[in-house]
Design a protein around this nucleic acid. Structure first.
Lengths: 250, 250
DNA sequence: TAAAAATTGATCGATTTTGAATGAATTTGA
DNA sequence: TCAAATTCATTCAAAATCGATCAATTTTTA
């Protein structure tokens, strides 16, 4: 009997009767006690069951714990607050562009229940957008394997068909002199075009991005309103001279 | 016993009993252990099964997909065989178009390990294509909520930038007089354009589609080679007069 | 037709899994 | 509490399985 076969059998039995004895499993599987013990040890390590003297019992709710610790993570909350504020800028009838990336992804749950049209270059956003019921357009082009962002000539061509009321951009660097930057020049091109096609642009950047410079520039500070979570008074003034800045606090 | 025959047999058994032993497969196929090992390695690489010590088991994702789509193992296998044959038509250096839809989706695991470029209008295909490591382009446009296919003016515009060596299309209806048909006129437009941009076109259709007529036509029978799993002698002749027909058998 | 490529089966050393043995730890029952 | 019974973790050697390699055969290509 194969290892995985036994695993399946054990889990099935545990789920069915909440608790199983080792001897019972020895009989059912025809394997030795040692083997069953090893199986139980392994399954316990994988958090599927809880071992008890003489057998094993069901383990409940491991996913919840994870999500709790995740939700309490500070940086996530900050990203969410930034995304929430950005989302509040969206108005009835808007046609908005949402950039690829994790920061902008957090906007989707906060987007208002209004008649809006969403265009994005982020493949990873589409599912969530459709689930929210928004009219969703995806830019065409080459799919960047690592990030699932649409890039290349096709992406640029494809985007030229659209005009946006508001564009919401992620970034890797925000610098008062060097502007907004990102590591991939091809992505930078897409971002740059999106900004030029939009009446108004917002850049979402948590404090870890402020002061940083990445390889490829996609815009000057003044070209977009900056939404962030923390800004020292001194640096803040440098940015506010150039553009609108919103600092969200938790 | 042919390689493809063994693949089919292995997949069938895995799907039927969730887990198979190598020895069992050696007996059933009459092939050597080495060959079966190679088969399993290959099928694992194509994301169809998960190898375990002593055998192989069903990939979890596939299992869910199966139960959701509620497809009998027979019709699934037929689709797979059709998709497998279609994939065998792909050659080194080809630029191919893969239509949105479940039938064409089955092609992805069988696509050869060659330098090819894949263009698709099916959002649902992208993940699997990237996992296989192919250069992947996605058509832009409006995302059809139910099927996750790209449609609309943007899709048409976006596609015009490309030319294909081969296009692989799904369909809802195949009729000797009314040609290839699909329910959604917008999707039909996209399909029609894809065919016109390709040097060569294949339509994948299991027997449930043959003789059927859906609302919107996207091509005449003669415009594509037909790949199906079953065809009565009488109807077969009607199609073979118009185009190339391949009937795959399990 | 000959050369090249792919497929296959066998072999072998390496790795993983298994079952039994041992003594320590835990539970049970008086 | 104590002793018997049971269960436990650890170790070790046998068995099974694995991946890699090679030669023979078939298929494809030039």
């Amino acid at each position: 009997m194969l290892t995985d076969e036994r695993y399946g059998l054990i889990l099935e039995r545990v789920k069915q009767q909440d608790i199983v004895k080792i001897q019972e499993l020895v009989e059912v599987t025809g394997s030795s006690e040692s083997t069953i013990r090893r199986d139980l040890t392994e399954l316990e390590k994988k958090k599927y069951i809880k071992r008890v003297h003489g057998g094993a019992k069901l383990l409940k709710g491991k996913l919840q714990e994870l999500s709790v610790s995740e939700k309490t993570s500070k940086s996530l909350q900050e990203k969410q607050r930034i995304a929430q504020y950005a989302s509040s800028q969206v108005e009835e009838g808007d046609c908005i562009f949402i950039d690829a990336g994790t920061t902008t992804q957090h906007m989707i749950p906060f987007l208002p229940e209004k008649e809006i049209v969403v265009v994005t270059n982020g493949l990873m956003h589409v599912k969530a957008l459709l689930e929210r019921g928004f009219k969703t357009y995806l830019i065409g082009g080459f799919v960047k394997p690592k990030t699932n962002a649409m890039i290349g000539r096709g992406a640029l061509e494809s985007m030229r068909d659209y005009r946006f009321d508001k564009a919401f951009m992620g970034t890797n660097g925000v610098h008062s002199e060097f502007g907004y930057t990102t590591p991939d020049p091809e992505e930078a091109q897409v971002k740059e075009l999106a900004i030029s096609l939009s009446r108004e642009t917002f850049v979402l950047a948590d404090d870890s991005k402020v002061g940083e410079i990445a390889f490829a520039k996609f815009g000057d500070i003044k070209e977009a309103a900056l939404i962030t979570n923390e800004l020292e008074a001194e640096t803040a003034s440098r940015y506010t001279k150039q553009t609108r800045v919103k600092v969200v606090t938790i």
